[in-house]
């Protein structure tokens, strides 16, 4: 990356004895929709807050568009943030909320007004400008928060769990809106989430955080298809993890491996080129679009197999518990993982 929008080197943050962020290096390209994904407490939000300037790093550096901003206060950085709780000013109207950043920067009243109007229009809220935040729904507040941040035309927009407080349906709709908005404005979006599906849907690239460190940075497809270690494999999607003895007996190889459930065939008609194993179905899990079969292999391992529910949910279309089955998979779908010990 020749000219990254954000360049982070050796970023570390200690809260007392706790190492919240532990030596993070990261480059985010201009115009990229970048997600930071990880379980709670993994340090992703702290990294975002350090980029925004709300927290000062214990050590390490942050560059924005080639300028070192480490140590600069939040008000002196060309980034804007959409907060998890939206953080709309309760004593101001929607219009005043959106104008706040421009007013602080002493933008003339007419221009300020015009830009705020445009920003509200871009999130379809022009008719709500005189309302107080408390008179809006959750989704509307979310959009005001977006407009308030974008009206300043920052180089980078930071989003802290932006959709976390919305219900599932609204979240899906907002995801699409966010994606469209990012394409429209063309600036760098960095967003923090613990929802892997959201990250896979929205992001160009994803950083997987664990325990204050980044495990892997990759595109959604790479992450899914080529997780580099058991944590990533387990955190992104579901996977069958084969380690030690079970890997040796099943695959005849040393190390840790992952096979995605949908990559495994159930009773394949033609086993040419497949690695196979047989076992007994222990559990059948009905998930609507798919069914998951938990199969105990004769070699003492357990594999989960996902099958699309092509024929509806009637009993005859489902294989039954205690049925004996043969499983088969292509060797290239066995992903070799690096473990910490290696």
């Amino acid at each position: 990356m020749t000219n990254p929008s954000i360049r982070i080197r050796g970023l570390t943050k200690h809260f007392g004895q706790v190492r919240a962020v532990d030596g993070v290096d990261l480059d985010i390209a201009d115009g990229e929709f970048f997600a930071m994904l990880g379980p709670s407490g993994s340090g992703k939000t702290t990294v975002l807050r350090m980029i925004a300037g709300f927290e000062q790093p214990t050590s390490g550096s942050i560059e924005l568009a080639g300028t070192d901003v480490t140590g600069r206060p939040a008000y002196d950085r060309d980034v804007n943030t959409v907060f998890q709780d939206y953080a709309l000013f309760p004593h101001m109207s929607v219009q005043d909320n959106v104008e706040y950043g421009l007013r602080v920067k002493k933008v003339a009243k007419a221009e300020r007004h015009e830009r705020a109007k445009d920003a509200l229009a871009s999130v379809h809220l022009e008719q709500y400008s005189e309302r107080r935040p408390s008179q809006l729904s959750g989704g509307q507040r979310q959009r005001v928060a977006l407009a308030r941040a974008l009206v300043n035309r920052p180089k980078v927009l930071l989003l802290d769990e932006p959709l976390g407080a919305l219900d599932l349906k609204l979240r899906r709709a907002m995801q699409i809106e966010l994606k469209e908005l990012q394409r429209e404005v063309g600036i760098t979006f960095v967003f923090v989430t613990h929802d892997q599906e959201e990250a896979l849907t929205l992001a160009d690239r994803i950083a997987i955080f664990n325990d204050g460190k980044i495990e892997q940075v990759a595109t959604p497809a790479e992450l899914y298809e080529q997780p580099i270690n058991p944590f990533v494999a387990g955190f992104v999607g579901t996977s069958n993890l084969l380690e030690n003895e079970s890997a040796k007996t099943l695959l005849g190889r040393e190390g840790s491996f992952s096979i995605r459930p949908e990559k495994i065939h159930l009773d394949p008609a033609d086993t040419t080129g497949l690695q196979t194993a047989s076992g007994v179905i222990r559990e059948v899990i009905y998930l609507g679009a798919t069914n998951h079969y938990v199969v105990d292999l004769t070699t003492n391992a357990t594999l989960t197999v996902a099958r699309q529910n092509l024929h509806g949910a009637s009993d005859q279309n489902l294989r039954h518990r205690a049925d004996t089955v043969t499983l088969g998979w292509l060797p290239e779908h066995v992903i070799e993982l690096t473990t910490k010990e290696n």
Partner: peptide, 18 residues
């Protein structure tokens, strides 16, 4: 008063006094 309101104000460019 949520801390995020203070963060938001700083984020939008306001110094502590403002």
């Amino acid at each position: 008063l949520p801390d995020s309101l203070l963060d938001a104000s700083a984020d939008l460019g306001a110094r502590p006094w403002l």
